[in-house]
Design a protein around this nucleic acid. Structure first.
Lengths: 196, 196
DNA sequence: TTATTTTCTTAACCTACCTTATTTTTCTTA
DNA sequence: TAAGAAAAATAAGGTAGGTTAAGAAAATAA
């Protein structure tokens, strides 16, 4: 594994010098998780901010009745985990679990503040990254409130086709906030409607 | 109006020197909106990042059927508007409307990049602010998926009592993703349940 | 103080989506 | 290549929350 995709991602939003890249790289850790392994489990403190180089991750909340609610998927070039737990170093509310063998790059919390000091451009990189994610989240809330399940499903297929293909249907249903049974029924109806 | 509450808010997350405060203040604009006025309307480009000093704002999406879906409320010390439109200078998807006379502090998009250059700590301030907002949004999505309307309502009352008191019920219903009629019904039932 | 508008309530009926249970299909792994 | 496990489909009955329509209460304006 090398750092190319990771550095590319950062340099899209800010321009690091060679020295800055060097400092950054010196703080990175590589790790490979197997299918089913957890990057973070709820109630643990999230100690490593995690960037996916290859593989597939789901982030979910486990409620008191034992139901899983998927908040996000993460594939190549996405940050995953529980950002809230990381920044405040308080127990996580979410779990991030690998759905296949997943290679990641991580930055430890202890190194993060040093990094921000030595490479202030990283503040900018993360600000821009999070701003975008925040915008998407707000819009997702609105879609959840203004669109019926069918439209939300179609929107997802269109917007994240790679994820839709790589993730089991029942997880997609959970992400959309519906049951797998209802998604299945919807798909059947849509297939029938398309025939006529 | 003075800048105290605004600077306090920033200094909670990063420590500005007097010089930095001076530079920042030189870029700030003050403005007062009347009840009903829009800070941003959807399809316009959001040119001023807006911090509420006093007053009350709602941010909502207007769907094709003419229904309003409230994404957020903003009162004292909250940033409001459509951050996505601001950062990318593309047409807004949301409207921010004042629900009463509202005093704000604004930073123009043209000044923002200069400010980040001259006062890099602001990158940090906004990163931290947005990270927190993003965390809250993710958790809100999960609550929408895992809690029935009644629990979401109670959660809101507990978490944002000041807002709950100052905002009409039908707007709160919209924020929660239910109809005002259903909220009214729920409230009645809750009142009855408490009697017995 | 009344008139008007805005907000809230109530009630009957309706539907999108859930629950439970069973079966079928697809994927894994031996 | 078969056997077991995971994922998807199907179907019947149930419910949280929506819709429509009317009236009551509260806030605002004149």
């Amino acid at each position: 594994m090398n750092y190319k995709s990771f550095l590319d991602n950062i340099n899209q939003k800010t321009q690091l010098t060679e020295d800055e890249e060097f400092i950054l790289i010196s703080k990175l850790k590589q790790r490979t998780y197997l299918k089913g392994q957890y990057i973070i489990q709820q109630d643990d403190i999230y100690r490593y901010q995690t960037f996916v180089v290859s593989g597939k991750v789901r982030t979910f909340y486990l409620d008191n009745d034992g139901n899983e609610h998927i908040v996000a998927f993460g594939i190549e070039n996405w940050w995953v985990g529980d950002i809230c737990s990381f920044t405040t170093q308080t127990p996580a509310e979410f779990n991030s679990q690998c759905l296949e063998k997943t290679e990641v790059i991580q930055i430890a919390f202890e190194d993060m503040e040093d990094l921000y000091r030595e490479v202030p451009k990283l503040e900018r990189y993360f600000r821009i990254t999070i701003q975008k994610a925040y915008g998407n989240m707000s819009k997702r809330i609105v879609r959840n409130h203004s669109m019926p399940a069918k439209d939300r499903y179609l929107y997802f297929l269109e917007t994240y086709p790679e994820i839709a293909q790589r993730v089991p249907q029942y997880m997609l249903a959970s992400y959309l906030g519906i049951t797998k049974e209802f998604l299945s029924r919807m798909r059947k109806k849509m297939a029938n409607d398309n025939k006529n």
